[in-house]
Design a protein around this nucleic acid. Structure first.
Lengths: 145, 145
DNA sequence: GTGTTTGCAAAGTGTTTGCAATTTA
DNA sequence: TAAATTGCAAACACTTTGCAAACAC
């Protein structure tokens, strides 16, 4: 019944974030050992479902703070929706366009050769490989315009 | 003074789209031979600046119709803003995070080895490689929380 | 003519902000 | 107690929609 709070609290402390009730609750939902891809909305729903009183605005704040602290990584695959990944190790993604689902791909499963040099005055931040897939399509019928 | 309209009209016709005044005007702005990365907003502004009477809603419609017709490709690099690329040939991107700028990278400049098989029931749609770069940072000072 | 496309303004998304009330250390 | 954090609701940026008027063929 009582999952330990200590690990989440430590995690936050180590990240330099105050372990407030809502941050601890969110951290416990997020960092349970499995790799998750969450949208603010879904996390908020999960928190509420778990009986945690937290506002959506606080969830957004927490997600950004966690990201800034290196506990999460933001994944951009869909304009108009942000996903946060609990896997902060270098890796890539499958994105199932039809249902907005993400799946990790270990970095070593994608061979990425030499990368062209960044434009002048800029430095490399990250390389994101997104493999977009979709439910297999019938042999699509013609459409007019 | 009079840039030819015929090419744009043909382009639209071939794509199965009615060459209406606004679609022709937008096509002429977009397909001038160079590779462009536009957001709806910017294209609308450009059209208005060029003296074309067109509403933002129509620009959105046109961009999606052009994309569906294969004349454009949507590039997702920023949650909350859609970019459309006039280069529909297979290629990748640099994304300068600090100023929201995109630059093309020819497909052959990125070596992509074997790709893991798509999740069950799905088929490959596209592989996007986004190399995120940023203005070179000073040696960032400490921040607290 | 007839069906398509447009413009407008309103409605939607998803996200951020301002600020008083609350909580943490 | 002082400073950080929260919740709420309002403000946001961007995108989509509904429908009458305008347009293409």
């Amino acid at each position: 019944m009582t999952r330990p709070f200590a690990p989440a609290i430590d995690l936050l402390r180590r990240a330099g974030l105050r372990p407030t009730r809502q941050r601890v609750a969110l951290a416990r939902l997020l960092f349970d050992g499995t790799d998750r891809h969450v949208a603010a909305d879904a996390l908020h729903a999960a928190a509420v479902a778990a009986g945690v009183r937290v506002s959506l605005a606080t969830v957004y704040n927490a997600l950004h703070q966690f990201t800034a602290a290196g506990l999460l990584r933001e994944v951009v695959v869909d304009p108009g929706r942000s996903y946060f990944d609990t896997n902060t190790v270098d890796h890539h993604h499958f994105y199932v366009e039809d249902d907005g689902t993400l799946a990790d791909i270990p970095a070593e499963d994608v061979t990425l050769g030499a990368i062209p040099p960044p434009p002048a005055g800029t430095e490399l931040r990250r390389v994101d490989v997104v493999i977009r897939v979709g439910r297999r399509r019938g042999r699509g019928r013609a459409r007019k315009n």
